[in-house]
Design a protein around this nucleic acid. Structure first.
Lengths: 163, 163
DNA sequence: CAGTATCCTCGCAGATACTG
DNA sequence: CAGTATCTGCGAGGATACTG
């Protein structure tokens, strides 16, 4: 059988991956965060085949992550732009980027530092926080089914401490 | 030509995706966060083919995201466990999960609420924060090449405000 | 239990030419 | 510029049987 789709997985993570988890979508989102707007700019930046880019843009449009906006200059016919849903991926992108900068940055690879535009200081590392702002580690959190959840779904084990 | 690898992309995001960005790896990590430990448990939970699981585990081991630990009971020969590098994916996982719960949760899908184990309150939504703890939006941040970065790489455009 | 080995299928993706 | 259309193929991924 071919690739398995995650649409029917009863898990936010899986569903999310089904919308933005493929190889190119997240990089497209990243480029949109970085200011790319036109089809050609994206194609050139990413080095992706045009038909693949078309497909990914279509999916992102369908999922409401991006939208088409009027062009800003004569060089482009219109501009791709992140929707609110897309902009809401900012924490994900920053968390990924910070993890990458910390753990996987390889030889000759630029560490991209995300800074506060006001003072130029780097943004804080992303942390999981409780309501009293205390930082929470893996051992201090649990995953519970929210309201309306299926009690005996397969996600029973609530994030136990690993150590 | 076949699939393009992201290893040579000069961008943390791309490099990160090369390590954990494929369809199954993140779900494996998620299951490890959730307490799964054995090969069979992972295979059953995810419904992934055994050879694929083997391959992903091997890659995650090579990248140092997971490690093998002694078994805890008679049913398992040893246990897979997240390393520090792997546990550091917690903000990414939480951010993804929260995004999914907010935007892509579909019909009959349980919203997984991550809570503080002390008081049972949900953890705060992941936010990008400045050093003074102010929340930063897309318009208020910039991406700069960090120390040792290649100035004229292709990632020049520093996150301009989209609106 | 925890994999390995094999076979096979189809989806992802690259290249390129063409249209509006 | 912004795609669409078509051809091609690698290899990811599934199924299953086998091993230690």
């Amino acid at each position: 059988m071919a690739r398995k789709r995650f649409e029917n997985f009863c898990c936010s993570t899986a569903q999310t991956l089904d919308q933005i988890g493929d190889w190119w979508s997240l990089l497209i989102v990243r480029d949109l965060f970085s200011g790319a707007r036109s089809f050609t700019a994206l194609a050139d930046n990413l080095g992706v085949a045009r038909n693949i880019l078309t497909d990914r843009l279509k999916r992102l449009l369908e999922h409401g992550v991006i939208e088409k906006a009027p062009p800003r200059n004569e060089d482009e016919r219109f501009a791709y732009r992140l929707t609110e849903k897309g902009r809401d991926l900012l924490p994900v992108m920053i968390a990924l980027m910070q993890w990458g900068d910390k753990w996987v940055r390889g030889a000759g690879c630029e560490p991209l530092v995300v800074v506060d535009a006001r003072d130029g200081k780097p943004v804080r590392p992303m942390r999981v926080r409780a309501w009293d702002d205390r930082e929470l580690g893996l051992a201090e959190i649990r995953a519970l089914p929210g309201p309306g959840a299926d009690a005996d779904a397969e996600g029973q084990a609530p994030l136990p401490a690993q150590a």
